[in-house]
Write a protein that binds this DNA or RNA. Sequence first.
RNA 1: UCCCGAGUAGCUCAGUGGUAGAGCGGUCGGCUGUUAACCGAUUGGUCGUAGGUUCAAGUCCUACCUCGGGAGCCA
Length: 461
Amino acid sequence: MTRTLVKDALAADSPRDSILIQGWVRTRRDAKEFSFLEVNDGSCLRGLQVIVDAALPDYAHIHRAATGAAVAVRGRLVESKGAGQKWEVAAETLEIVGECPGEYPLQKKGHTLEFLREIAHLRPRSNLFGAVFRVRSRLAYAIHRFFQEKGFFYIHTPVVTASDCEGAGEMFRVTTLDLAAPPRTKEGGVDDARDFFGKPAFLTVSGQLEAETFACALSNVYTFGPTFRAENSNTSRHAAEFWMIEPEMAFCDLQGDMDLAEEFVKALITDVRANCAEDLAFFAKFVDKELLTRLDFVLERPFERLPYDDAVDLLQKSGRKWEYPVERGQNLQAEHERWLTEEHFKRPVTVFNYPKAIKPFYMRANDDGRTVAAMDVLVPGIGEIVGGSQREERLDVLRENLAAHKLSEKDYWWYADLRRFGTVPHAGFGLGFERMLMFVSGVANIRDVIPFARTPGSAEF
RNA sequence: UCCCGAGUAGCUCAGUGGUAGAGCGGUCGGCUGUUAACCGAUUGGUCGUAGGUUCAAGUCCUACCUCGGGAGCCA
């Protein structure tokens, strides 16, 4: 007999004489003549109620069907006599596939998120984490769907990179050298030439530069993969390993870049809203009461587009006391971003044309000589969710930028080549996958939207 | 890395210098078309670690560890 997923059984439109359900017992309630089992298989939030009659031979081992036990139930799908569910299974056989002893840490009652993090191998069996990771899967699918339907090509940029690119953050070194006794140069330093790649290698912090090369060939491309930052960041919004989406478009300027970012964010919300309704309703009930209102609010109106200079003016005239002073030329602080998006505009805000000095070398210089064609999308509750720019396509300006950032043109020879051979205006952005998932789920800590979070001092599992 | 807060039973917490507690969970029994079931009994502790103050420390002090919140860095 083939297995029926709980999700499909719950959606049945008529009774069935024969059904096989396999899953894990969430709870058991014993009566004198029969027991109720709630069986969940992760296919959806809800479980399926199973009635095991005391007259069944298998009832002899009903006590082994404890919370957490894996079971296989064969029986009939019938309309439930009780309130609370339409369908239930009248068991004919109950097989205990895997027992679950009393020290199983997941109780029926609530646990704190902090405790569940310590049992990350079991937490997907909880309602909340089941929902989070179903939505995570759907969100990933929605991302591919969005780009594929627009004719973007999915590029797999390398995870191991030998170019210390971009200064996007501290990098993890990848090496096969013996750390206790590394080969030495004549001068006494570590001889990187004898490392695996013949030079120092690292885990990638961004696929952007490589994606640019493919945009300058296939026109519209995107990456979607893991990235790594060895920053000692201890916040609810940072992880050492996270996933990032980076579209890159040839023949595109900052305007087109901002348009795509807004369309993209809205498309993802729309998709999850339509396809994960039950899980989102769960988040709205138990995690963040305002979730659905906020998501719909974002969908309904255009993002505010605000030049950096205007943002500074607004902040200075706000009458607010800032912990960090607002000055032209300085980066916007978390408190400033929050005020703009949560208090002043009450919607996502796209800030653009940032000061040149606080942005990386690859961003395109504006004609004013002091700003670059950069943009950040700020959303309520999360802050920066998208960071992007039009890229500098003029070889001479790029060279000046490299020099100004004290970077060697020699290390970026292939990147500069794009400007030498058929250069073209192009633009792109990066969107943090986990931050987007936090936004659509209302879950406040990045550690709770990653299956197994890697943060400073923590790489269990 | 900096600032703040918290570490007491498997989990969530109470205990403000004088005999270590509750609810939940687990176990046993009872009851009920139950559904975070209910009722009774029972089980369960090196009070994060190491020092110190005191007649006496879960409680006060110091250091460290872990976790959380905020900040910086960023996505």
